[in-house]
Design a protein around this nucleic acid. Structure first.
Lengths: 329, 329
DNA sequence: GAAGTACGAGAAATCGATTTCGTCAAGAGT
DNA sequence: ACTCTTGACGAAATCGATTTCTCGTACTTC
């Protein structure tokens, strides 16, 4: 059929009514049965699709929400995205995924885009502490932080109880008989990295640890960082016999480092935050603190949808619990 | 500062020029140095950001490309997305990712959105053969199919040489001494599944295979499908001693099935299309046909950008070669 | 010195849908 | 019988930026 643009005016002409009436039919406003019939028929015949850009300009609003994540290749974030998407599309919203690669500049660009595109709201998994959502807040656009909070009391957030997770990860290793439990965590500027480490530290103290930093390594939440940190730990004069690793990718790297020197998770205890879907961590005897990634996404979407619907109560923080699969094997 | 909307009119007033001039400054048209200075200063002070929706409406064009994929949790597609994004953002385009979950209806919705949103172009990893891009073609919007072709001679496509990959995967198993090599491929309606299977079949014939379908299983490209298919094969009266698996997820499932009965890839040969980032397929002795996912994305983006730039020559099909890592271990 | 050429810039039209404002007519209320 | 609602619907304003169209001034070129 028509290769060209069909506008509301053509539909109006075809149906013998005014453009205003066509718009009313499309948006469910009061219209006579007769007009409605005519307009629908005309729209059908002309294969009319309303121009969303024009609508958005007029309405200053679009049913799209932006989900900004730091790393699209990390399964944790894709699972989270899936959760957001499920809730959002059930509510009639589309989700556009924006990948920042941990780059604050790109994050900032995407925030601008969300704003300039009149998106309904933004769910942000912050790249780092410097994330600046003030423009969104100033324009009163709904925002929800997920995974990491933004240290602002005026922004909704969804997180997990990282400290408790760190604590139980470390405990389960001690309980299994390991005695020198190290910790490989993320960048010291990142909230989740700090909290997970603090959980570990708490357990360590209780088991007579020195409380020093000898067994603590800050890495970058990436595979190579995990590998390097583990290699360092293994090279210590008095190396650990187990480790809590603060995220899934670093655990993959740490595992490589173990295999490199002929160790396995059976002999060197490993507990990790967050699974890696097909890496069969648990089949290899690694203890996993289950991060409810999809649920995080769903909770964030719920919060955001509430705000979009007009809820303007004080900011809420939802804390999800880490499921313990630690006793397994 | 202002929490409210700043328009081009306010900037114009502040700078003492007309809105038209502001627009010219923003778009690099001819303007006197003096005006330019004034406008820039005013825009700066007011923290002006142009409304992209208005611009888009007027220009009937936006610098956003849609990437539509069937499964955001499959690392193959996220790697592909990464490739698209790299090329696109280098060229100044943003990418929005749309996840269809293999649902043709959602795919269709996203195509409509891309159209109604005046997006610059669409890169589509088709959910299945029914994918309908005719609306895009009719409106002369650039489209590129990736991974699977659309069987249309008027649409650019980027694929890999699936048949050759299937052939060499099977061959490498025979070369390693396995004698009954099975094949677990995707849905029979999917092009890539057919071609990979045909490559396997070719090798099988050459090695005296019966050419029957006893050792062939069609599954669904998902983990569970792979597991079930492998379980079936193992339960045969005369089971195979190796298998070519047509994608990464099914291989993960197949592997589970092997472990379930106490087999390992060392004893039961396994060759798979596409790696699974942290599953350490090759460490486990699995032969991997390397799918250049990122490169597929980059190639698709290149093609699309050419079209966006105005190239309207005949449709091209780019075929990338599967890297063989098969001799490894 | 007259005619021709550029160039900077403002006024106004435009993109396509939504929404406000009024009008007109039919039914309700007194 | 007359005013008051109420409902359907067209004309026109609106959203914010871009893009003609036009005009006045300055600079060439014979």
């Amino acid at each position: 059929m028509a290769g060209a643009k069909v506008t509301i005016y053509q539909v109006a002409a075809r149906a013998g009514v005014s453009p205003a009436t066509v718009s009313r039919v499309l948006n469910g406003a009061r219209v006579s049965e007769e007009s409605e019939r005519l307009v629908r028929a005309a729209a059908e015949e002309l294969a009319f699709t309303p121009d969303r850009t024009a609508r958005r300009l007029r309405r200053q609003y679009s049913e799209v929400i932006a989900l900004i994540i730091p790393d699209i290749e990390n399964p944790f974030f894709t699972a989270l995205a899936r959760g957001v998407e499920n809730r959002a599309s059930a509510a009639g919203y589309s989700v556009v995924l924006c990948n920042t690669d941990d780059d604050p500049a790109r994050e900032s660009t995407y925030i601008d885009i969300a704003l300039a595109d009149h998106m309904a709201g933004v769910i942000l998994a912050p790249a780092d502490e410097a994330s600046d959502v003030s423009r969104l807040v100033a324009r009163k656009r709904p925002v929800v932080a997920v995974d990491r909070s933004l240290n602002r009391d005026d922004v909704d957030a969804v997180t997990v109880d990282n400290r408790a997770g760190g604590l139980s990860a470390a405990r389960s290793l001690y309980a299994a008989g390991f005695t020198r439990v190290a910790c490989i965590t993320g960048p010291s500027t990142v909230e989740t990295a700090q909290l997970r480490m603090e959980g570990w530290r708490q357990a360590e103290r209780r088991h007579g640890g020195a409380g020093g930093d000898e067994l603590l390594r800050y890495a970058d939440y990436r595979v190579d960082g995990g590998r390097a940190a583990m290699a360092e730990l293994l090279a210590l004069p008095e190396p650990p016999d187990a480790a809590v690793v603060a995220n899934n990718l670093m655990a993959a790297g740490a595992l490589d480092a173990l295999y490199d020197v002929g160790l396995t998770p059976a002999r060197f205890g490993l507990a990790v935050f967050g699974d890696l879907p097909h890496a069969s961590f648990s089949r290899q005897g690694i203890r996993v603190v289950d991060l409810p990634a999809r649920e995080l996404g769903e909770a964030a979407a719920n919060l955001l949808l509430d705000r979009i619907a007009g809820d303007d109560g004080p900011a809420r923080t939802v804390v999800l619990h880490t499921d313990r699969r630690l006793e397994s094997r």
